[in-house]
Design a protein around this nucleic acid. Structure first.
Lengths: 296, 296
DNA sequence: CACACTTACGATATTCGTAAGGATT
DNA sequence: AATCCTTACGAATATCGTAAGTGTG
């Protein structure tokens, strides 16, 4: 039993004529004859009773009719669905993004992606950097955006840019008038930090330890927005990725670059090596690379 | 997109190897390659990513996987179902039978049919003769068993046998000792008859009118069983098709042939002309013809 | 170098269209 | 006689298998 045979069968059943069916599906009359004959032989009985002047479905043919319709419809649906998927006209995509990026530069990239592929649903998981990497590694998520992990085994990495850490101080703070700071100066004050196991926290702690310095953590919180608000309220100073510059300003804090030592990390698109991306994910990577390349 | 291509796709997806898939479906490796390639070109994108040493489904391939399974399963089911139907291993059949036949000779025919085709469901409608013919004409029912109707236009008819009408009298009735009766004698007594519009009733009335005779109906009822019981109880005499002979005896009445004039009717299998019977119905007709030919 | 997929090419099988045949109204 | 389906046969197409090619671990 063939797809073509079913199509021919349907055409004959619907037109009530071998000849009309032939023109309907752009075939010759004899081809229709043979196709039906073959189908009947396959199935083991007659589907039509034809008597030169009249054409009837047999009972068995009537039984096949709805089945044939639904089979062909299901077939066409499946084919169409997958073609659409390849043409990026439908689809779904999950990405994991570290919070500092999700709340800063990512949205403009997503906006462009959405303009290009309006029918792809994008699920954004804003989770801690380590979780981003885990989610990509496990295969649950196709694309991760975060600081470059130390261990990139089995991962494919596209570095986007290098991000340095900056100081955030209250407006009325004595340091707020400076152009830039050193860690020595900054660390004299109470620090508001992200809670462990934040990677930002551990990166800074690690880098400071290398330079024989230490944090004086007065408060810690989970969300950057909380840290920003606490700084703005004068509870202390903070150190955040420069990605959060704008957010901190909006919350009423002052941002200052830190030198000596300058702590910075690469931000990258992370995908699983050896496992192909969906067309939708491929397009997302391309769009993000473009977008971030165009940024200052 | 082809049935074969989907089968190949499934085999590759399940074995994780082009080579294994090839042996699984009895094809050469290159044939599998070409089949998948063709499918991918049809759909507009890659389904597998193959790198000599590893084989992965793409995201799109994973989307196709369950679809392919269900499409092929639906296909196989449909094919199997129809083959079974042709082989009379499954199916349904509706027949309409006049009551005198349904309660007498039909059951032995049905028993044989059931032995031969145990998986065909048979729906027996025991209705008045005229209704039998109507049901066949309308196409709601494939096979009718009843007296031969006057108008056989658009019907195909297989005559089974000729049935004469017989007299039924109570055991203690003065006529019960006779070997046979004439209508003149019989009609001196109260008659218990089927109610109009029974065809038995109208046939007898018609035949008697031709011979200038008349019924003296004391009681009438719908069911033959009721008539039989009423006769047995001595309420009167009756005239029924000889088909009911046994039933009348069982109910305790005495049956006698009637001569002069002998009223009889052909009993026939009635089907719709120009409309093919299902295989199941064809087999029923054959079985019934056989069965009734073997009867006395 | 071994293994797995791809490409090339000749052979086979299937399908198709034209032309002739048969049956019914 | 006209119409519609079937059969016959040669041609085009598709598919398959063997053999050679390519790339990766």
């Amino acid at each position: 039993m063939n797809k073509r045979q079913l199509q021919v069968f349907l055409a004959v059943a619907e037109t009530g004529s071998f000849a009309d069916a032939a023109t309907l599906i752009h075939l010759s009359q004899p081809a229709v004859s043979l196709s039906i004959k073959g189908l009947e032989e396959d199935l083991g009985g007659a589907l039509f009773v034809r008597s030169t002047r009249s054409l009837h479905l047999t009972q068995e043919g009537q039984a096949l009719l709805p089945t044939a319709r639904s089979l062909l419809a299901a077939w066409a649906d499946a084919e169409h669905e997958l073609k659409q998927r390849f043409k990026l006209n439908i689809g779904k995509l999950a990405i994991a993004v570290m919070p500092s990026l999700a709340a800063s530069l990512l949205p403009s990239g997503l906006r462009i992606y959405r303009q290009r592929y309006p029918n792809i649903k994008v699920e954004v998981h804003d989770v801690l950097t380590d979780t981003v990497v885990e989610m990509v590694r496990s295969g649950h998520i196709e694309i991760g955006l975060s600081f470059l992990p130390k261990d990139t085994k089995e991962l494919t990495v596209h570095t986007l840019f290098n991000d340095r850490f900056i100081a955030v101080v209250p407006k009325e703070h004595p340091l707020s008038q400076k152009q830039e700071l050193t860690w020595q100066v900054l660390l004299r004050y109470d620090v508001i930090s992200l809670q462990r196991p934040s990677s930002v926290r551990s990166m800074i702690e690690g880098a400071l330890a290398d330079a024989d310095m230490e944090f004086n953590v007065a408060f810690d919180a989970h969300q950057l927005a909380t840290v920003g608000r606490m700084v703005a309220e004068g509870l202390g100073v903070a150190v955040v990725p420069s990605l959060c510059h704008r957010q901190m300003l909006e919350q009423g804090a002052v941002c200052l670059p830190i030198k000596a030592p300058m702590i910075c990390r690469d931000v990258a698109i992370i995908t699983r090596a050896k496992v192909p991306l969906s067309v939708a994910a491929e397009a997302m990577v391309a769009t993000l690379l473009e977008t971030f390349a165009a940024l200052p």
